[in-house]
Design a protein around this nucleic acid. Structure first.
Lengths: 209, 209
DNA sequence: AAAAATTAATTAAACGTTTGTTTAGTTTTA
DNA sequence: TAAAACTAAACAAACGTTTAATTAATTTTT
């Protein structure tokens, strides 16, 4: 779907306000004001608030799967090296799309079969299958140990990054980083998470012990 | 604060619906219906919807800190043993209070200085300080390695459990556990998370390598 | 190329619902 | 019989959406 400038502005505003206030907390008038357009334009372009949410989703849910497939094919990287790239990809994706991922987290908490819940499920399933292949490849070559629960592993990867983003203000305060500029702090988070997660997974995947 | 039966019913209903639908998504009429009381009783007992949320918080935010303090004083457990008990406490607390923790997660995403945001912050800060002492004790005795980032460690602990709870339906499906009864599944989650997290932390805290 | 006709974009206002809260009255409890 | 518990109804405000009218852009006709 091709979007006009105004439509992009609406999606951007919706993404921001849905992330901050939640779907019900953000009114269409809020969004219209943020996007600097008339309220009626939201219905005009997207049909409804619900459909606007779907448009936000469609626009932002880039597939990480392609990257994983490329990783699988890469023969210059070790098996652990591939996992490390995967970690960095996830960390980067979450940090650069914080707003969208807050929306995703919220949407997953809703106990309802929304169209978006289905989209998230399929996305996660496809990603997981690719990552499973990546791990199994390492196991076959003896680089990784047997009995790795990939779902649990991904739960820790995604959970750690999500939790960091959700509680970044707390993290800042606990580390006396409140003075730090936003961009600088994002770099800091990125680095810290990357090292932390790589250490965590290196030890729990490794066959040597 | 002592609550009557009806007040408890309202808090329970509010906890459930705030968790499922979010604060704005759950209407006072929804809550009144769920609690099987008249809408006006919410204002009558709690003053407002906002205050009801605070009451839910006050009623559910049991302090895990006391448990940690007892752990610190325990001399029958090894340092790693204490960390393992801590892990189990967190896993149990989250699984048995899933609804409340969903509310906490949602509340932390809101970029607003609500009274509850302050409560969460103080709670986390106090807990963190106790856990830091627990880790430092182990470091002093040479059981744990130096340079442990306790905030990051807790981010992984809380993040993993949160993510598991948020995406438990996905986890069920990926492991073909859809047939499993709710109580049985909770036991399963509890066990899996416990083992997974203990392994993860054992290796990243341990001084032996 | 100018004029006319058609379509698209945009607006302010109004729509009917739903929202959280209050009121005024009734029933129950102590 | 006074206080507390409870109710149905009403309240104004905010909600998502639609309408009707106007302006801007595009296409068709001359």
């Amino acid at each position: 779907m091709e979007y006009s400038e105004k439509q992009i502005a609406i999606i951007k505003a919706a993404e921001k306000l849905f992330a901050i206030k939640g779907f019900d907390g953000a009114s269409v008038r809020d969004i219209a004001h943020e996007a600097d357009i008339n309220v009626a334009m939201i219905s005009y372009y997207f049909g409804s608030k619900e459909k606007l949410m779907e448009a936000v989703f469609e626009a932002r849910s880039s597939n990480i799967r392609l990257k994983i497939e490329n990783l699988l094919a890469d023969d210059k990287l070790s098996h652990l090296g591939k996992v490390n790239v995967l970690i960095d990809d996830y960390v980067d994706k979450f940090i650069h799309q914080q707003e969208f991922h807050k929306i995703m987290m919220r949407e997953q908490m809703i106990e309802k079969d929304t169209p978006i819940a289905g989209l998230i499920h399929d996305l996660k399933k496809r990603n997981l299958e690719s990552i499973k292949r990546l791990i199994e490849e390492g196991q076959k070559k003896g680089a990784f140990k047997k009995n790795i629960d990939v779902v649990l592993m991904m739960t820790t990867l995604v959970g750690t990054v999500s939790q960091m983003i959700t509680s970044q203000y707390f993290y800042k305060k606990m580390n006396n980083l409140e003075h730090m500029e936003e961009v600088e702090f994002q770099k800091h988070m990125r680095k810290k998470l990357s090292i932390h997660l790589k250490n965590l997974f290196k030890q729990s995947l490794s066959n040597e012990q």
